[in-house]
């Protein structure tokens, strides 16, 4: 007969985690929700007042908010497929037999971009893509190409933040997918290779089912990361030129800490959170299946 664990013991073990989660995650969230229901400007604290959902109404009807949201999703829709495609390619190459030391070296070097702080990536971008002194323009100059205005042109600046995001996070996707590939039973994979010479067939019908859990994790994590991407873009372009790289997180920071309107910024953040949760649920329902 199983011994029943006393309730106190259960609570004792669970409490530290629950309390930490509540203090670190839930309390600030509740405070943000509280703030979002108020006129709450740090420079006008004498006028703080409860205004129901006015901040939400103003955010949802603000074209600038939707432009920033559109830019963020455009970035997500371009960067994420690139990361998955290139990451899968790298994972498949590293999964192939016979690479030995080169595989180890590649795996190690894949960690480097991920380990680089976002803000440092942005500063690297500023230095490397500087119109006049940047190494990139110097390199393309050797090929006879005129210097490109990477940071000062709206289109180029947007392309550049996508480039740096892909550079930094493709290795993460590659390592997750590589881990997924190692879970494919070797006898199944060998049998598949005996059946067909098409790598696509093997990938589609044998390897992909094992990759799905990792892929869903990648989708959720990278979507959440892109929606809240801030440091790299802030240090690289500060949202400019104009609004061309002002992603939603930069906009929230600008409203909250440069215009000091904490009420509106909180409403924007809550709306972003809701969108992120909906997307995560969608990914899980649409893609996730137990192998």
């Amino acid at each position: 007969m199983a011994v029943k664990t006393p309730r106190g013991t259960i609570f004792g073990f669970l409490a530290p985690a629950v309390i930490t989660l509540a203090v670190v995650g839930i309390v600030p969230l509740l405070y943000a929700f509280y703030t979002s229901l108020h006129f709450f400007n740090l420079t006008k604290l004498k006028n703080v007042r409860f205004i129901w959902f006015e901040n939400y109404a103003s955010v949802l009807t603000d074209p600038v908010f939707w432009e920033a949201m559109g830019r963020t999703f455009a970035m997500l829709l371009i960067a994420l497929p690139l990361q998955i495609a290139i990451g899968l390619g790298i994972a498949l190459i590293l999964h192939a037999p016979g690479l030995g030391f080169l595989r180890l070296l590649t795996r190690l070097s894949l960690v480097l971009p991920m380990a680089t702080t976002y803000a440092v990536v942005g500063l690297l971008g500023q230095v490397m893509f500087n119109l006049k002194f940047g190494v990139v323009n110097q390199l393309i100059g050797f090929l006879g190409i005129a210097p490109v205005n990477w940071i000062g042109d709206p289109f180029n600046a947007f392309a550049m933040i996508i480039f740096w995001d892909v550079w930094q996070w493709t290795p993460f996707v590659a390592l997750v997918l590589l881990a997924g590939l190692t879970t494919v039973p070797s006898e199944v994979e060998e049998a598949a290779h005996l059946e067909t010479k098409s790598w696509w067939t093997v990938l589609r019908h044998v390897q992909l089912p094992f990759l799905m859990p990792g892929l869903v994790a990648v989708l959720i994590l990278r979507t959440a990361d892109t929606l809240k991407l801030f440091d790299m873009v802030f240090t690289l372009t500060r949202g400019g030129p104009g609004s061309s790289t002002e992603l939603i997180s930069l906009m929230i920071q600008r409203v909250g800490f440069r215009a000091f309107d904490q009420g509106v910024a909180s409403a924007q953040a809550i709306i972003l959170l809701i969108i992120t949760i909906i997307l995560a649920q969608f990914y899980i329902k649409a893609f996730y299946k137990e192998v």
Binding site: V64, A259, D261
Partner: peptide
């Protein structure tokens, strides 16, 4: 005046849009 931090944000946004020809 005290409202300048909010107004400057608007000026920055639309001033730049003008310069970019948007």
């Amino acid at each position: 005046f005290a409202e300048w931090p909010e107004i400057t944000e608007i000026v920055q946004e639309w001033g730049t849009k003008m310069m970019l020809g948007e």
